[in-house]
């Protein structure tokens, strides 16, 4: 299917700046941030309240996460997770990620956020 016509029509309706902002769907800032944390221990808390601690193995543009050496925080409540040591977590179901404090320099974070806010 040729979608280029659709794209062209969209471009004529909105100005260039808006296109840059709206098409920047990938959360580049947090994607980069999580990539820096690979190899560190994090706790991922999901929207269904399941909390899993493990080593951050990888992350992608949707903020899907892979953890290694995982253990469920409340093991008794989730017996079916007993033998899971590696897992893939869909980014959309994440509520929080509890981060290590020695992750990334806070000034670098602030600068990166300001740059992202300017549409960079």
């Amino acid at each position: 299917m040729d979608l280029s016509v659709f794209h062209r029509r969209n471009k004529s309706q909105v100005n260039e700046k808006d296109i840059i902002v709206t098409s920047n769907f990938a959360t580049q800032l947090f994607f980069s941030y999580f990539k820096e944390l690979v190899g560190k221990e994090v706790t991922v808390e999901l929207k269904n309240d399941l909390a899993i601690r493990g080593t951050l193995h990888s992350v992608d543009q949707y903020l899907n996460i892979k953890l290694e050496n995982t253990r469920v925080v409340d093991q008794d409540k989730y017996p079916h997770m007993l033998s899971v040591r590696n897992c893939f977590i869909r980014g959309s179901v994440v509520r929080y990620v509890l981060l290590p404090q020695d992750g990334v320099d806070i000034d670098i974070l602030h600068d990166a956020t300001r740059r992202e806010a300017r549409g960079g």
Binding site: R85, F88, R90
Partner: peptide
């Protein structure tokens, strides 16, 4: 369908899948 997936975990064959009391 991917939308409905929360988590995919690998079951470690070396370990018990469920606690012994179940």
């Amino acid at each position: 369908r991917g939308e409905n997936v929360v988590l995919i975990g690998e079951l470690d064959r070396e370990k018990d899948e469920l606690p012994a009391h179940m």
